[in-house]
Design a protein around this nucleic acid. Sequence first.
DNA 1: TTGAAAGCGCTAACAC
DNA 2: GTGTTAGCGCTTTCAA
Lengths: 356, 356
Amino acid sequence: MSGTKGTGGRRITIVDVARHAGVSTASASKVLRNAYGASQSMRDKVQASIETLGYRPYAPARGMRGRTFTIGVVLSDLDNPFFSLIIEGLSRAVRSRSYELFISPSGYEGSPQQMGIEAMIDHQVDGLVLVAPLVTPAHLEVIATQIPLLVIGNHSRSQVFDSVAADDHRGAQLAVDHLVTLQHRRIAYVMRAGDLSDETRPESRRLTGFKHAMQKHGLSSDSMVLFASWNLEGGREAARHVDSLASPPTAVFAGADVVALGMINDLWDRGLSVPRTYSLVGYDNSRSASLGPISLTSVDQSGVRMGERAGELLIERIEGRNRASHETFEPRMVKRNSTAAPAQLIKYELTPATKL
Amino acid sequence: MSGTKGTGGRRITIVDVARHAGVSTASASKVLRNAYGASQSMRDKVQASIETLGYRPYAPARGMRGRTFTIGVVLSDLDNPFFSLIIEGLSRAVRSRSYELFISPSGYEGSPQQMGIEAMIDHQVDGLVLVAPLVTPAHLEVIATQIPLLVIGNHSRSQVFDSVAADDHRGAQLAVDHLVTLQHRRIAYVMRAGDLSDETRPESRRLTGFKHAMQKHGLSSDSMVLFASWNLEGGREAARHVDSLASPPTAVFAGADVVALGMINDLWDRGLSVPRTYSLVGYDNSRSASLGPISLTSVDQSGVRMGERAGELLIERIEGRNRASHETFEPRMVKRNSTAAPAQLIKYELTPATKL
DNA sequence: TTGAAAGCGCTAACAC
DNA sequence: GTGTTAGCGCTTTCAA
């Protein structure tokens, strides 16, 4: 409510503050930044003027010389509930340290993501968080030369940027172990459509974890991999694909909750459901997974905590740390009602025309 | 990938471009902005230099003199799925006009929201979108003197800012009509906890619509209003509250899908469900509402389209329109399985210990 | 049509 | 401890 605008609509500047306090702009600037070399009385005077005038620093001008106290986040889309969790944590960490958070939702393709990243850099944010970026490790290094960088989800371990990730290999293993314990053998993994060659991507990592785990259980020949877009519609397509298989799996491990949700939806539309038709495990333990009627078994990767830690680490880095920091979070299984023993497939099957 | 950094990590500036093209910075600037007064050959030369050097304008410097080609969005939280829809539409409109979109999730309280708004203004975005802001109409006017403003959801009709909203009064009426057609009489409305005096807020508007509709059906004495926070937990509390009522409603109209989802969840945990225990109508028609096992009847307010239109209108305004524009969208009922005739309450009741 | 130069608000080097 | 001032990259008069 306080007037950021003086007479005539002009914005209050540091010059106004300095004049009002009867000091130089340099001194006013020092007070603003809590910089060294300003007496207590100076601080008090300037602080008082700032308040009476309702002064707020002008970010572009700041950006041209120093910091903007803003963190940028680039992610794919906000509809993936996992990202909401990340943002919740990030937001908390960043706000409590008096930084602002700007988010750019940039889609699931490389080029718009690159644009989002550039926009953040061009706006001179003090640090950048990339959530599961679709960018090569080499390019991450390039970005990191331009701006303090922290990557969430990606497994690159560079010296020039920080990272926070969950142990996706382990997460996939947990999912497979859970299903195998329930006596499943034919298990499918639903992977994000795209490049699988890059072992730094979470989905690729989960794929490897899946394969290893299946191998460990002697089920390599019973494993299959499906591809899907990372949204509800992708899940629906995956569900239809599962149905079209000659010998369908008794359990499906979806690489993201959204995809699992889409699958559940498609099954429902055809009078089918989990775990009746097949068992289903999601990934992310998003809020929808916990909804009673959904009750999706899912691998939790503590999204909120990851986001929070990401914010802490990035600001630490901005404020001076120069050794890279890489943290890994342990995933854990959250067992709900979407998984059951395969025996139940027959036992509870009610609709007559279902191919099994 | 192209080098934004010259030798020694310095950023490529307009001076570099001008030198490389053998022209003045003023001319280079004109080409950049497609401004009047540059020959075709000049344009070609400069454009070529921009590409070979990989130049990108530096937003802070731009911000200090002119536009930044960035739109800011301030909203409560990203976990409310309705906002994802809005963002999807906004994003599409804004990107296709070569603007960038920065989002600030600022919570459900006035003061952090105000900070988010100020941060956007301080960063000199070219225009600001506020989604269902917790701000008085008077204060919206103040903001609009500082920056081109468009408000989504709010029903203030100012001359100084634009707005896009759904007809919330009508939406509530649709919900009530639907329930009454199903023979419900005792109907509760779940309202967002907070100030109800402000008729410009969507929830207040829905409240009025609810009351009018109930009155129209001669059911004023059968109507009740509950309050809840606008998230899953708020919904859970609301569900427990409904249960504690002396004579509970046979139908509940929740002011937002998230809240309805929370209610469904709480009911589920106690072995209850909709429409068995009571009928339930949500608002927003978010993606979760359409999930088969949820199948929540909801009032659709075309979130994506509203966001898209908001982006279009704001950019129009930035680029010169000076008459205010206010658009209203017609809501529509999406009937699903969470609503049924109250008779079914008894018919399908299975758990013995339920109070009805 | 083009270019020279002032200046946006701030920080940081340097002088006092 | 405090003030003076150059200059960040860009746009925008204004003169040529």
